[in-house]
Amino acid sequence: MNRTACLRLVLGTSLTVATTAALAHPGHDAATVNASLLAGLAHPFTGADHLLAMAAVGVWSALIARSASDTLRLPLAFVALMVVGATLGLSGVALPAVEPMIAASLLVIGLLVALRAKLPAWAGTLLVGGFAIFHGYAHGAELPATAGALPAVLAYVGGFAVATMALHLLGIGAGTLLRRRAGWLARLAGAGVALYGAGLLVA
Score class of each variant (00 low, 15 high):
residue 145 A to S: 08
residue 59 V to T: 03
residue 193 V to F: 10
residue 173 G to N: 08
residue 102 I to K: 01
residue 10 V to C: 07
residue 138 A to S: 13
residue 7 L to S: 08
residue 108 V to M: 04
residue 78 F to Q: 07
residue 40 G to V: 06
residue 170 L to H: 00
residue 5 A to G: 13
residue 195 L to S: 03
residue 108 V to N: 02
residue 157 V to P: 00
residue 43 H to V: 03
residue 43 H to N: 06
residue 84 V to M: 14
residue 166 A to K: 02
residue 15 L to T: 12
residue 102 I to Y: 01
residue 163 A to M: 05
residue 115 L to Q: 11
residue 71 T to R: 15
residue 135 H to W: 04
residue 68 A to W: 14
residue 27 G to L: 05
residue 9 L to E: 03
residue 89 G to M: 01
residue 196 Y to M: 07
residue 158 G to D: 08
residue 73 R to K: 15
residue 135 H to I: 04
residue 116 R to N: 13
residue 13 T to E: 12
residue 5 A to D: 15
residue 83 V to C: 06
residue 33 V to Q: 03
residue 199 G to A: 05
residue 38 L to K: 12
residue 18 A to E: 13
residue 39 A to Q: 14
residue 13 T to V: 14
residue 99 E to T: 06
residue 14 S to P: 06
residue 90 L to W: 02
residue 94 A to W: 11
residue 54 M to K: 12
residue 49 D to M: 10
residue 144 P to D: 07
residue 5 A to N: 11
residue 17 V to K: 02
residue 183 G to T: 13
residue 11 L to T: 09
residue 181 R to P: 03
residue 144 P to T: 06
residue 136 G to L: 01
residue 195 L to K: 04
residue 171 G to F: 00
residue 178 L to C: 09
residue 115 L to C: 05
residue 165 M to C: 07
residue 163 A to H: 02
residue 66 R to D: 02
residue 18 A to H: 05
residue 67 S to A: 09
residue 74 L to Q: 07
residue 177 L to R: 13
residue 120 P to S: 12
residue 10 V to E: 06
residue 112 L to R: 13
residue 122 W to L: 13
residue 160 F to M: 08
residue 113 V to S: 12
residue 137 Y to C: 08
residue 167 L to E: 12
residue 188 L to K: 00
residue 39 A to Y: 12
residue 47 G to T: 04
residue 40 G to I: 05
residue 78 F to Y: 13
residue 96 P to A: 03
residue 87 T to S: 12
residue 56 A to W: 12
residue 181 R to W: 12
residue 82 M to D: 14
residue 8 R to N: 04
residue 111 L to V: 14
residue 53 A to I: 01
residue 43 H to Y: 09
residue 52 L to S: 06
residue 176 T to H: 10
residue 3 R to K: 11
residue 149 A to F: 00
residue 32 T to N: 01
residue 52 L to K: 14
residue 115 L to R: 15
residue 67 S to H: 14
residue 29 D to H: 05
residue 195 L to Y: 02
residue 34 N to R: 15
residue 8 R to P: 02
residue 147 A to I: 10
residue 171 G to I: 00
residue 19 T to R: 13
residue 88 L to F: 15
residue 74 L to P: 04
residue 138 A to N: 06
residue 130 G to H: 01
residue 14 S to F: 10
residue 40 G to N: 11
residue 21 A to I: 02
residue 22 A to T: 09
residue 108 V to L: 11
residue 134 F to R: 02
residue 161 A to C: 12
residue 187 R to I: 04
residue 125 T to F: 03
residue 80 A to H: 01
residue 176 T to Q: 10
residue 162 V to Q: 05
residue 138 A to V: 08
residue 63 L to D: 01
residue 44 P to F: 13
residue 9 L to F: 07
residue 201 L to A: 04
residue 7 L to F: 10
residue 180 R to Y: 11
residue 52 L to E: 02
residue 20 T to C: 07
residue 162 V to F: 08
residue 48 A to W: 10
residue 138 A to I: 07
residue 192 G to C: 07
residue 198 A to S: 11
residue 31 A to T: 14
residue 71 T to M: 14
residue 85 G to P: 13
residue 115 L to V: 06
residue 150 L to F: 04
residue 11 L to G: 10
residue 186 A to V: 09
residue 185 L to Q: 04
residue 56 A to S: 14
